[in-house]
């Protein structure tokens, strides 16, 4: 018998949510310079809510976490991780399209 001690309400981080860059650094285990470089490379957008107070859209978090993991686990630099991320995303899109086409072909 599982004893439930608490019922938690989840907060889904979605469009409209912005996260402070300092928090991004902690969540994605990347440093401030890397976040700046990723924004310059166009991996995600950013905004300056107040002077010196930079934020990143919460929707970019999954991508930035992948970048962080690639940098730490594979030892690649920021631009290498950004390139790998784009290639991985392209690969996934192609896989989705391939699965859809395969399903269509199988249906015929």
């Amino acid at each position: 018998m599982v004893r439930v001690t608490q019922v938690l309400e989840a907060h889904v981080l979605g469009e409209g949510d912005w996260i402070a860059v300092s928090e991004i650094c902690q969540l994605c285990r990347i440093d401030l310079d890397a976040v700046r470089e990723l924004a310059a490379l166009g991996v995600m957008s950013s905004r300056e809510r107040a002077p010196g107070e930079w934020q990143v859209p919460a929707t970019a978090l999954p991508r930035l976490r992948v970048v962080g993991r690639l940098m730490q686990d594979l030892g690649v630099n920021v631009s290498g991780a950004a390139l790998a991320l784009e290639l991985l995303e392209t690969q996934r899109e192609l896989e989705v399209r391939l699965r859809r086409l395969e399903r269509l072909v199988m249906d015929y």
Binding site: V2, V4, L8, A10, H11, V12, A58, P62
Partner: peptide
């Protein structure tokens, strides 16, 4: 260990992050 029940709202999408504050 302790067990909690998490309510996940409708409309979550692939790769989206859900934050459970203080957990």
């Amino acid at each position: 260990s302790h067990t909690v029940r998490v309510t996940i709202p409708a409309g979550v999408t692939e790769g989206q992050l859900i934050r459970l504050g203080g957990q």
